[in-house]
Simulated assay, not measured.
Amino acid sequence: MKYHDSIQQAGEKAAQVKLFLQRANLAAHPVNYAVCYEYISGHNSQLCQIIEQKLSARAPLDDFIMADLYSRFLAPANPQQELMLQEASGMVSRMAAYTDVAAEQLDDYLLHLDHSMLQIQQTKPDPVLQPIINQLQQTTAEFRLSQQQMQQQLLLANQQSHQLRHELEQLKQQRLLDPLTGLYNRLAMQNQLDLWFSEQPGRRIAAIAVNLDHFSRFNQEYGNTIGDVILSKVARKISSYVQSSGLPVRSGGEEFLILLPDVDLRSASEIAEQVRRGVEKLRFVSSRSKKTLPKVTISLGVSLYQQSENWYQFLGRTAEVLLLAKKRGRNQVASELMLADGALA
């Protein structure tokens, strides 16, 4: 068993979990309960740190965030899955290469065979050898027919292996994408960060935290289905301002994060302002009532990664800057320079 709590300890923790879920307005389903129980137990420092940062920044905890925490810290580890994907991808790649080579060699052999038979037919062989030549021609024709059939099978196998490799790549890509918005998820973010820092340990990375203003109120009034449509369209608009070098991430229910390598704070703030204006110009109409829905706005916080902090501290500081934008009236951009100047007061 993972926990070794007594009945009394388990009961006390269960009461704390229930209270936590009520305060966070979270449903008491198994995933949320398990994450809260782990947080109350305090065994997983990273999970506790993330939740503490959310609470200190007054950021809402929703099912999306809880499911992400569960998958990252509590779901049974399965290192075999990634290994199997890698091995399958490698096997299919080798199969495709082998069939490519085999098909090419078979084409060369058949051309050489046709050339040789043409030369034999153009010569005047000894009558004694003619039956042998006739038999050779018949055998060659039969062999050529069987090889043509084999070539068709190789081509089919080649097409299938290439298709399988494409599907494997799609599967690997889907594991890195948020299914609702199509933006990258936290796994993709961590993979990309590891890559950036391995390329250049002291690399400058700017982060733009994005949060939809009053979105929970919007969901309550118009429903989650329309809310999902809004999220998807806002996500596409956000992504349109991110160049190929950057990474747009869905980091929470109505929260997004734009990571920009080799970008200074001023440039990141300008990009954030462009994103804010772009989202503000979006207009939404209900497909049922044909009525125009209220304007959707976003608040943004911009900060730079510092080598002296770990990534979770950086995300926490970015959340503080985002909170500053909300406290200043929402629908605006705040940077960590404002935070440093005491703009929060």
Rank of each mutant, 00 (worst) to 15 (best):
L156Y: 01
Q160H: 13
T181D: 12
H162P: 01
H166Q: 08
A188T: 09
Q174N: 09
R186D: 05
Q159N: 09
N185W: 04
R175S: 15
Q174V: 01
Q170D: 05
Q151R: 08
H166V: 06
Q160S: 12
L156K: 08
L168K: 03
L176E: 04
R165E: 07
A188C: 14
H162T: 09
Q159V: 01
Q159Y: 05
G182C: 09
H162L: 15
L187P: 00
L187A: 15
L171N: 04
Q153W: 11
Q163T: 14
Q173D: 12
H166G: 03
L168A: 02
R165C: 13
Q163A: 15
L177G: 07
N158P: 00
N185M: 09
L187Y: 10
G182Y: 09
L176M: 11
Q160Y: 10
H166R: 06
L156V: 05
S161H: 01
Q159W: 03
L155F: 05
G182P: 08
P179A: 12
N158I: 00
H162E: 12
E169Q: 04
K172R: 04
D178L: 04
Q160V: 07
L176T: 03
E169F: 02
L176A: 04
L177K: 13
Q173H: 10
R175G: 15
H166I: 05
N158A: 10
Q170C: 07
N185R: 07
M150E: 11
Q170E: 06
G182T: 07
L177C: 11
Q163P: 07
L164H: 03
A188S: 14
S161D: 00
M150V: 04
P179F: 14
Q153T: 12
L176Q: 08
R165L: 15
L154R: 01
L168P: 04
S161N: 02
N185D: 09
N185V: 08
L187W: 10
Q152W: 11
A157F: 08
L164Y: 00
Q174F: 08
N158K: 12
N158Y: 10
A188W: 10
Q153D: 13
L177S: 09
N185C: 13
E167F: 13
R186E: 04
D178M: 03
R175H: 14
A157T: 06
N185T: 07
E167M: 14
Q174W: 07
Q173C: 12
Q159A: 12
L164Q: 04
K172C: 01
Y184S: 14
T181W: 13
T181I: 08
R186G: 07
Q163E: 14
Q151S: 06
A157E: 11
N158E: 06
H162S: 09
L183R: 03
